[in-house]
Nucleic acid binder design. Structure first.
Lengths: 245, 245
DNA sequence: TTTAATGAGGGAACGGCGTTCGTGTCAAGT
DNA sequence: ACTTGACACGAACGCCGTTCCCTCATTAAA
């Protein structure tokens, strides 16, 4: 950083001011901002107290005045990120499509922020942004005629599916950093898996061997869409009466 | 440890034997065994190289002759655990029920082994035990008349759902150790969440406020069963023709 | 205007982590 | 009897989250 030179005596007529003359004053917001910048650039594992502090030109101890915990910082990051999700205006005629749109949107936001989905998994959503999303989903299912109990569980199941997919996505994207040949490595690995499946004993694993193509095909988007379709169909199967509003 | 005293000369007539006289000879199997014992007792976070080594009465460096990585150890643990899953014999008439039975069985095994589900998430299943499970699931869907492409994706979606549910389950079970009053703490927290939901502005979150009971009810088992039902219904909705065999 | 209280900032340290290096030790092969 | 090679492991490196405690700018009270 070299903003300080303690080896030189203070010149006369100049009071020895604080170390960093005009740095931003360190608040929860700027900490979360910085943490997300590190997350985007190097993944969730790189978001350590020390790293964030260093990025702000200070020591790790300074963060604990604004954030109680590393866990709290992670949850704050998640809430900040979920604020980027854009929700549609409920259209009763398209409730199933809109449910899918929301899922795709969440996935888009998650996968654009490294491994952040890992924070979401196994966390009861209480942040305002996540609540707004849940509200939109519940609204769509209400106008679609899904029974309340089913709708409540569907929010849960959808969330789990989106989280798990996003995590899976980023696991293989983030392997070996975001170097240019990460894709090549991934494809190499996928081909290894394919060869491994094909080479399995056909008498013990007839279905797997016979379905290698189906099991290993599908880029992230397509696979996600299919799984989503299964879920939405399942949800829709509970609809008895048409919506009233 | 103090099993050795290099500062004293070796007494005559006694060859200075190895430190530990008759310890088990350290193999990949005993390492995985020990790791799982720690996992069961104190959770996945406690499974560190040092901890496992200590449990075996040795240093962490010794493990690296049998296990390349902590990550590899985790995957070996997962594979060992999935070996406990008991699979039904395919009965075409009950393919949907049996698909559910498998899911429940996996969940039972996972939740009986601490946070092990965290390892499963975002990992292409290549271990023999996980492959056997996938084979059974594919077989059930084949006889059920589910199109191969859908079946392949369904295996994935089911796995994600089971993993995510098991993780969520253990997150709140494992909070504050497995002390006797962990449940009480959990219920206290759940009541806080309920009160928080009820206190939300009803104009912005009408559905959430109106569905507090549905959203926060359901012990793990019931919730899991409902989500599973949604998934199976979705899968079944793709069945066009009845099975041939 | 002076003084006292407040509380954020941050240097240093503690205990623990994954992993590597180099050395020691022993059993099997020659 | 000697070599060799695989395994065991003490020690160390560079990380980590978190806490202790002192410095010091700011602010409220006198």
């Amino acid at each position: 950083m070299a903003t300080q030179r303690p080896d030189l005596p203070t010149p006369p007529g100049r009071k020895p001011r604080r170390a960093a003359p005009a740095r931003q004053p360190l608040s929860q917001d700027v900490i979360v901002d910085t943490a997300i910048r590190v997350l985007d650039a190097e993944g969730l594992e790189a978001v350590t107290m020390r790293r964030v502090a260093q990025e702000l030109g200070t020591g790790p101890a300074s963060l604990y005045a604004h954030v109680s915990d590393k866990e709290e910082l992670r949850e704050l990051m998640l809430d900040r990120v979920t604020g980027e999700v854009v929700l549609p205006v409920t259209d009763p005629a398209r409730w199933q499509e809109q449910l899918k749109e929301i899922a795709h949107e969440i996935r888009r936001v998650y996968t654009s922020h490294g491994d952040i989905a890992k924070v979401s998994i196994g966390l009861i959503p209480t942040g305002p942004n996540l609540l707004t999303i849940a509200e939109a989903q519940l609204d769509l299912m209400r106008v679609g005629g899904v029974p309340p109990k089913i709708a409540a569980l569907a929010v849960d199941a959808l969330g789990m599916y989106i989280d798990a997919d996003a995590v899976e996505d980023t696991v293989y994207t983030a392997r070996l950093g975001a170097d240019e040949d990460a894709w090549e490595h991934f494809h190499r690995y996928l081909n290894e898996v394919r060869a491994y499946f094909r080479g399995l004993p056909a008498d013990r694993y007839p279905n797997i061997v016979g379905m290698v193509a189906e099991l290993t095909s599908g880029a992230g988007d397509e696979r996600f869409e299919f799984g989503l379709d299964i879920l939405i169909r399942g949800i829709a199967s509970y609809v008895d009466a048409p919506p009233s509003a």
